[in-house]
C-alpha cells in the first residue's frame, strides 16, 4: 500500500469531522466533534464506556446516522446530499455505500459469516461486490489470508477458530475491499488476553505499510506505540488530543489523568 501525498509531501486529509452531532432520541451522544485524520496516519480513540467513541467511529462509515455536522472522507460528505432547494437530504444506502468504497470496518465481534468458510468469507467482497472472477478472487483471498497468517485455515468454518484467528480473518476480509481507510471498533476487546497480541501485530504491520487507521481501543500500549495521534473522548466531546507521548506522559485534562490512572492501576505498569 503506497501512501499518496501532495507535491509538497504533506499528507492529505483522509477523514474530517466537522461539528459532528449524533443523538438517540433525547440522548446526545456526540456533542460537536471536530477532528482531522491525515492519510497514512494511525489515530487511536480512547475513553471510558459511554463516551461515544464507538458511535464516533460508526458515524464515519455511516452505520450510525448522524444528525448535524459533517463527516468528510477525502473531501466528500458522507450520507447526505443536497436536494433542489439546497436542503440537506439523506442519500439512499446504495449511494452511501459507493461513497464509502475506500472505507472498511473491523468489528469487536468479528462478524464473520458462519455459514461460509474462511476463504469464502474473504472472497465475498471480491466476488459479490467487485465481481472479480472466481480464480482471481481465490488467489487474492489466499494472499490476504497469508498476510494475516491464516492461509492454513482457509477451508474451515469461522466458528471452529479462536477469537484471535477470527479477527485476523475479519481483517483479511476487510482488506479484500481494498480500503484506503480502516476503522477498528475495539478489535481486541472480545478476545482472551493471550490472543490480543496476534491481532495487534497484524494491525501494526498494516500501520507500517501506511494504511490510514482509526482505532477505538482500550489497548494503551498499542495506542502509545503505533499511533500518530490519540484522541481522548469524554461525554461526547474531545477532551484532549495530540501525539501519544504528550497524552500518555503529560496529560493536561483532569479527566484524562484519572482515566489513565484507573487504567494503569488495573493493568499494572504495562503502559
Amino acid at each position: 500500500m503506497t501512501q499518496q501525498t501532495h507535491a509538497d509531501n504533506t499528507p492529505r486529509t483522509a477523514v474530517e469531522l466537522v461539528k459532528l452531532r449524533k443523538r438517540y432520541d433525547d440522548n446526545e451522544v456526540l456533542k460537536g466533534i471536530d477532528l482531522n485524520i491525515l492519510e497514512g496516519q494511525v489515530t487511536c480513540i480512547i475513553g471510558g464506556s459511554g463516551s461515544g467513541k464507538s458511535t464516533l467511529l460508526r458515524c464515519i462509515n455511516f452505520l450510525e446516522v448522524y444528525q448535524e455536522g459533517e463527516v468528510n472522507v477525502f473531501g466528500k460528505t458522507i450520507g447526505y446530499g443536497m436536494d433542489e432547494q439546497g436542503n440537506r437530504e439523506l442519500l439512499p444506502k446504495s449511494l452511501v455505500q459507493q461513497e464509502l468504497s475506500e472505507v472498511c470496518m473491523v468489528f469487536q465481534q468479528f462478524n464473520l459469516w458462519p455459514h461460509l468458510s474462511v476463504l469464502e468469507n474473504v472472497m465475498a467482497p471480491l466476488r459479490w461486490v467487485k465481481g472479480v472472477p472466481l480464480a482471481q478472487a481465490k488467489q487474492r483471498a489466499l494472499e490476504l489470508l497469508t498476510k494475516v497468517g491464516m492461509e492454513h485455515k482457509a477451508e474451515v468454518y469461522p466458528l471452529s477458530l479462536s477469537g484471535g484467528q477470527q479477527q485476523r480473518v475479519a481483517i483479511a476480509r476487510s482488506l479484500a475491499k481494498d480500503p484506503k481507510i480502516m476503522l477498528f471498533d475495539e478489535p481486541t476487546s472480545a478476545l482472551d488476553p493471550e490472543l490480543v497480541g496476534e491481532v495487534l501485530k497484524v494491525m501494526q504491520e498494516l500501520a507500517q505499510e501506511g494504511m490510514t487507521m482509526v482505532v477505538v481501543t482500550h489497548e494503551m500500549g498499542f495506542a502509545a506505540q503505533v499511533s500518530d495521534q490519540v484522541v481522548f473522548l469524554a461525554e461526547g466531546k474531545i477532551e484532549e488530543q495530540g501525539p501519544p507521548s504528550k497524552l500518555f506522559n503529560a496529560p493536561s485534562s483532569p479527566k484524562l489523568q484519572s482515566f489513565l490512572e484507573t487504567w494503569s492501576s488495573r493493568n499494572g505498569a504495562a503502559a
Binding site: 452505520l63 459469516w113 459479490w128
Partner: peptide, 20 residues
Amino acid sequence: GQLEAAQDLGMSRITTLVKI
C-alpha cells in the same frame, strides 16, 4: 453484526439476502 459487515463491505441488500 453480520448484516452490518455485509453493508460495510459494500454488499447490496439483495446480495445480502441471498448470500448471507
